[in-house]
Design a protein around this nucleic acid. Structure first.
Lengths: 211, 211
DNA sequence: AGGACATGACTGACCAGTCAGTATTTTCTG
DNA sequence: CAGAAAATACTGACTGGTCAGTCATGTCCT
């Protein structure tokens, strides 16, 4: 009884509402970073938007840069993992896969946080070479390979004509990316209709690729 | 003699070697703005790169913002005028026009100052709504209409299938823009081959559009 | 002389990051 | 169970450095 009662687990056992804090802060940061750029965003505004004080940010992130890096780690990579897993599980004609992909990726980039992050990465990549290196190999590299694989399958199964699958995958993705970037920078506007653009692109792309 | 001596022309009549200054300053600014972003670029660095002092910048531009705006006015609009004029003069099949366009625009955006400016506009658009409004109506609006007109011509002449010419024009341009942006932000790298991408896109696009 | 061109040195505002201290929640003790 | 002690969560106020923009003072022409 007088002996020390040693808990088997040494880590904090209850961090109740507070493990929400990093997410709140990141969400506030995404929007402000997108609208004003990384440098022009004041950490105090991020704090206000997240409903905490500036000092609180430093409880969860080492620096302003770290906040930016966390965005990639916490929001982009998991999303990519998920869509790649979906793709691996896909059965059916490659053209159908491309249609689904265009819809889901198009929506994702045009109307969600992911588009804002994409625009942000493009805008700031040159300032953060290390992060860019990491991003390059983790995201476009893997994402494009995922599409290229499916295009090769289409070729092998006689659905698509012979072609450079890597270039085709890039040409397939670029309008989707560009639409997302547009909607998060110059747009939204009356000039670009994201759905019409993506639909046309998708169908025309498949038409061009079909035997 | 005591009377005011009013010059007939009120603008500076001799700006000898100095009418080179604004161009030098703008060229220095483009590169730094692209690499670091507008906010993070110190005007003193622009001055150093241009070989002048910071105060000299203020002889030719009202403010840092004005320097950014001048980039659009002086470098983008004239370039657009020029390519539109070329297009109007074009005789021949629409598909051939698209091929030429893809080559010239692709090169322009991937390997020249124009790509840097494009990336810069995308990165900063949200911070400068007035400029963005101006840019929107001057550049993408007119540029896309130019392409759409040519696609309509292809349709009328029985070369292309019936389709939404505006969406087609957008889908045609987006990979070219995206390639340029990529090469000026995340890239250049081993993942994206700009020439292969543009070539594939161009041929596949035309193939999809052909009757 | 006088006007155009140029600059070094300065300043006032701004902001990332720190820190000493407060509030709140959990754990310990009798 | 009270209520003290410890641990955790948070913050207001401050600081040191940075930088856009200014200005008094040149210099070099004609």
């Amino acid at each position: 009884m007088g002996l020390k009662l040693v808990e088997t687990s040494s880590e904090p056992k209850t961090i109740k509402r507070n493990n929400e804090r990093p997410k709140q802060i990141l969400s506030a940061a995404v929007e402000l970073f997108r609208d004003r750029g990384f440098e022009a965003t004041r950490l105090e505004d991020v704090a206000d938007k997240a409903g905490v004080s500036k000092a609180t940010i430093y409880l969860y992130f080492e620096s302003k840069e770290d906040l930016f890096f966390a965005l990639i780690r916490e929001k982009v990579i998991p999303m990519l993992e998920q869509t790649i897993a979906q793709a691996e599980a896909f059965e059916g004609p490659a053209s159908e896969f491309l249609r689904l992909k265009a819809q889901s990726v198009g929506r994702l980039f045009s109307h969600s946080e992911q588009g804002a992050i994409l625009k942000l990465v493009v805008a700031e990549a040159r300032r953060f070479p290390d992060l860019t290196e990491y991003y390059r190999t983790e995201v476009p590299e893997r994402g494009l390979e995922n599409i290229a694989k499916m295009i090769r399958r289409g070729i092998n199964e006689g659905e698509f004509r012979e072609c450079d699958a890597k270039a085709a995958a890039t040409a397939f993705m670029f309008p989707l990316l560009m639409t997302g970037i547009w909607m998060n920078s110059v747009g939204p506007d009356e000039i670009i209709d994201p759905d019409a653009t993506i639909n046309f692109h998708c169908e025309n792309f498949i038409r061009g690729l079909s035997i």
